[in-house]
Structure formats: structure tokens, C-alpha cells
């Protein structure tokens, strides 16, 4: 490769651009996200088929039925998944569904607690713990937890997260297995998560309940083959969250947009950052071409 310092003109400029200190790129990326946040840039979202399918899956569950929400993520993915979780809980509660929270990730329990405190309690004060909702918390064992729950839920969860015996919780006292739920929703950041719910939950009881999932952009590729046969709905990354929020807000507008609107807030910086990414890729390729010797071998 030709030394970029020896190339003049615009070609030389682009050739030298290839060797730019990466911290300038970091700065550009930082600004592309910080400025839209400070300017509160927001754009309209248009719900796609997968978000609509997720919304419809919750809508189809008869009022008063019990749904299981599995919080299979941690703070590292909360930026993408918490908006989905908040909207999903608000949607379920608006439809008067009984909600059972659990977690396959140790830190998922904290995320579920946060959702109860920020969504369920303030927006649905009529929801009573133990009667309308229950928090089972985290259990170690990954797919093993689902496997036991599929056939014997009290064996896996003899008590809820607060140590209360499952037989003393009105919502769960007659629950024998996963068949008690009409819908299982896994907010999933990886292993164990939505994939395991399809494999060990839906696989064990294919006709008992529907599975829906909200997943990170990184993991969602693994879940695409399950949609729509084994997974009724799938929220794809923060865009999926924003689209789902739109659908929920349109029908159940009581919620605080600051809480059921985080996904749309985070879509603002996406536009600028995505354009920057495209520009960086294009510039990187121009720099590569400019740095090549004229008419020479690559």
C-alpha cells in the first residue's frame, strides 16, 4: 500500500483519513447520540407486522386469565428491553389479566421489581399482590427451571420471591404447571431466555399457551425461525418496543408517556447514529480506495 503521506489533493486527504485516531470516531458517535437526546428529537413510528402480532397475542387472551412474564435480562440490556417490559405489563394490566412475574436471570428479578414499582403500582393501583399479580423471582437452573415448571410448577417454585409459600398465594395456589397460563412472554437478552421458552415450554405443551417475546437486536436473529409458528409475536429491538408502545398507547392511553414511551425516546438518537454509521462505512471504503496505488495491484 502507498504511504498516504505521499499522496496529495483530495485523494491524499481521504487516504490519510483511513489512519484517523479512533477517538475522533468515538467523539462523533458520542455527539451523534448526545445531541438528539438534548434536543429531544422524536419521530413517528409505524407499527410493523411483528409488533402488531405481539399486540394481538395479548389482546386475544381472555380477560381474567393468567399470563406469565419472564424477565430474562439484566441492566446491560435494560435500555432495549425495559421499554418492552413496561409496555407489556401496562398492556396486560389494562386488559385485566393476572400477571405472574419470574426471572431466569439473577438480575431479572430486580428488573421485574422495578417494572412492578414503576408501571403496575402507579398506573394500576387496583392490582393486589398475591391476587392479581405475583412475583416468583429468580431460580437458578436455566432451561431446567422451565422443564420442571412445565410439569410441576410448585416443585420449582415452592415459594414466591418474598418467601411466601405458593399454597398461600391465592393466584397460584391451584397452579400445577405451565398449562395454567394462557400466554408466556419472555423479555429476553440471550441464554436462558425466549429460545428456551420455545424449546422447553412451548415444546412440552404446544397447545396450552402462546409464547411471545421481546428481544435485543443481537439475539433476535436466533428467534426469527420460531416466528410465527412457535412464537406468536416478536418485538425486535428498541424499534419493536417503540412500535409496541404506539399500539398500546393508542388503545390504553392512561399511562404516563415518560414511562410507556422510553422506546420512542430512544429512537431519536438512532436516526443520527445510524446515518453516522453509514457515513463511517462509506468513508472507510473511500479511504481504502484512495490509499490504493494508482493502477497497481491491490
Amino acid at each position: 500500500m502507498t504511504n498516504p503521506q505521499h499522496i496529495g489533493g483530495i485523494r491524499g486527504f481521504f487516504a490519510r483519513l483511513g489512519g484517523i485516531d479512533r477517538r475522533w470516531i468515538f467523539l462523533a458517535m458520542g455527539l451523534s447520540i448526545a445531541i438528539p437526546i438534548l434536543l429531544k428529537l422524536r419521530f413517528p413510528e409505524y407499527p410493523g407486522p411483528m409488533a402488531k402480532a405481539t399486540f394481538d397475542a395479548v389482546e386475544k387472551v381472555p380477560e381474567g386469565s393468567t399470563v406469565l412474564l419472564s424477565f430474562d435480562y439484566d441492566p446491560a440490556s435494560a435500555a432495549e428491553l425495559q421499554p418492552m417490559a413496561s409496555a407489556l405489563v401496562h398492556h396486560c394490566a389494562s386488559r385485566k389479566l393476572k400477571i405472574v412475574f419470574m426471572a431466569l436471570w439473577p438480575l431479572g428479578k430486580q428488573q421485574a421489581d422495578r417494572t412492578i414499582d414503576t408501571v403496575l403500582k402507579p398506573f394500576h393501583p387496583e392490582y393486589r399482590e398475591g391476587i392479581d399479580y405475583a412475583q416468583l423471582g429468580f431460580q437458578a437452573g436455566n432451561e431446567g427451571v422451565i422443564k420442571v415448571m412445565a410439569t410441576n410448577l410448585p416443585k420449582q417454585y415452592p415459594n414466591d420471591a418474598d418467601g411466601k409459600a405458593i399454597g398461600d398465594i391465592p393466584l397460584l395456589k391451584d397452579t400445577k404447571d405451565l398449562g395454567a397460563f394462557k400466554l408466556v412472554a419472555s423479555i429476553s437478552a440471550g441464554y436462558p431466555g425466549a429460545k428456551e421458552w420455545v424449546q422447553y415450554g412451548n415444546g412440552a405443551m404446544p397447545d396450552a399457551f402462546e409464547v411471545v417475546s421481546g428481544s435485543t437486536g443481537v439475539q433476535v436473529g436466533q428467534l426469527l425461525p420460531y416466528y410465527p409458528k412457535q412464537m406468536e409475536g416478536l418485538l425486535v429491538a428498541v424499534k419493536g418496543a417503540a412500535e409496541y408502545e404506539m399500539l398500546v398507547e393508542a388503545k390504553y392511553p392512561a399511562a404516563d408517556p415518560e414511562v410507556i414511551g422510553q422506546g420512542r425516546v430512544r429512537m431519536g438518537p438512532q436516526l443520527v447514529a445510524h446515518l453516522l454509521m453509514i457515513a463511517l462505512i462509506v468513508l472507510g471504503n473511500i479511504a481504502m480506495i484512495a490509499g490504493r496505488p494508482r493502477g497497481g495491484a491491490r
Binding site: G18, A28, I281
Partner: peptide
């Protein structure tokens, strides 16, 4: 929570850098 979240947030910067240098 902030440490875990920020550690993963760093990846946004490195994805940008990698896109500039490696996507040919």
C-alpha cells in the same frame, strides 16, 4: 447496574470504529 450497563454501552463506540476500519 450503571457499571454493567455502561460496560456494554461502550460497544457502540467500538462498533462504529470497526465499521470504519473493517467494513470493506
Amino acid at each position: 447496574s450503571p457499571l454493567t450497563a455502561t460496560m456494554f454501552a461502550l460497544l457502540a463506540f467500538y462498533v462504529a470504529s470497526a465499521a470504519f476500519r473493517a467494513f470493506r
